[in-house]
């Protein structure tokens, strides 16, 4: 197996606020290989977006990366200066946000912004650059690409803007794309187009993607492997199909069971009781124990560590679920 493109080792990102220290990311480890899509899932407050921002060095005070390594192609990004990170962002690693307008500049034409990316990363002449831009827009499914180059971002619809952002990331030849809820703001018909496009481009170019989302259905169609986060910790990780079919952590199972499915009509959904605990007051023990149907006294005593369960699955649980769950 090839060396991973990205290795995150024991990442800890804390926010020092008035109400106490928020351990948004607390010891997260996973890796991403070439040509692979890794999904980071979890509910709000799970810390999934903070992981993405940490990799890009976009954590602002009162937040800080306290510990851990982010090895990208062998280099530790966590140790780089802001200056050095600036050249990594938008180059080697690109980011696609939920709102495409956060990455597009409203005062420049789309063509100008794409051209700038090529000027920075290639030595093509003007004409060749323009040809590349047109080609790229066509590849992401924008028709009449030639004339669209001279349009401004606000003249595009939400789905079209997201395509442009992806085109810019691809132009830069980014090897890793971090997509934070890239299709949450889009309609399902457009979402299907964008997901398909991203998946194809990643595989074809041998790049890699981290897909941050709350939507397990999207993950099940997009990702090769999944990392499930709860209260800043990895509770389970493994191959997508295995996790979706037979999760080993009670939280993952609870998440899956609470999604209504069209294939089977259940009168009631299985809900996870209670709500996410206040992350500032978590003590020792498993942070999911108060909502868990398998919790035992030991769950309050000892914090479970991530360890292999079966197949590709690792889980942080004292009582992981069997393949044929009860």
């Amino acid at each position: 197996m090839a060396d991973p493109l990205l290795e995150v080792r024991d990442l800890r990102t804390y926010f020092h606020t008035f109400g106490g220290v928020v351990k948004a990311v607390d010891g997260v480890s996973f890796d991403v290989r070439q040509g692979e899509v890794v999904g980071l899932v979890g509910e709000s407050g799970g810390g999934k977006s903070v992981v993405g921002f940490s990799i890009l060095g976009l954590i602002d005070p009162p937040g800080r990366i306290e510990a851990g390594e982010i090895l990208f192609a062998g280099e530790n990004l966590a140790a780089k200066s802001e200056e050095e990170m600036r050249s990594v962002r938008g180059g080697e690693i690109a980011m696609v946000f939920q709102d495409p307008m956060t990455s597009l500049n409203p005062v420049y034409t789309v063509g100008h912004q794409m051209d700038e990316m090529l000027r920075l990363h290639t030595d093509l002449d003007r004409k060749a650059r323009r040809a590349r831009c047109v080609e790229m827009l066509e590849q992401v499914g924008i028709s009449e690409a030639e004339s669209r180059l001279d349009a401004y971002p606000h003249q595009f619809s939400g789905g079209m803007r997201q395509r442009v952002v992806i085109a810019i990331a691809l132009l830069a030849g980014s090897r890793l794309i971090i997509a934070d809820e890239p299709t949450t703001a889009l309609d399902v018909t457009v979402q299907a187009q964008i997901l398909k496009l991203m998946r194809r481009q990643i595989v074809e170019r041998g790049a890699a993607m981290i897909m941050v989302t709350h939507d397990l259905a999207v993950i099940s169609e997009m990702a090769d492997r999944v990392v499930v986060l709860y209260c800043g910790k990895v509770v389970e990780r493994g191959r997508t199909a295995e996790i979706i079919n037979a999760p080993s952590h009670p939280y993952t199972r609870g998440l899956l069971d609470s999604i209504p499915r069209i294939a089977e009509r259940r009168d009631r959904l299985d809900q996870i009781p209670g709500t996410v605990p206040d992350i500032r007051t978590l003590g020792k023990g498993c942070s999911f124990r108060d909502r868990c149907f398998r919790a035992q006294p030991v769950c309050a005593e000892k914090t479970p560590v991530l360890s292999p369960v079966r197949g590709s699955l690792d889980a942080a649980c004292h009582f992981p679920l069997e393949e044929t769950a009860p």
Binding site: H214, G254, P260, P273
Partner: peptide, 10 residues
């Protein structure tokens, strides 16, 4: 969130 969504639908 999905787990809360299920509570409300129920």
């Amino acid at each position: 969130d999905v787990s809360i969504q299920a509570q409300i639908l129920n």
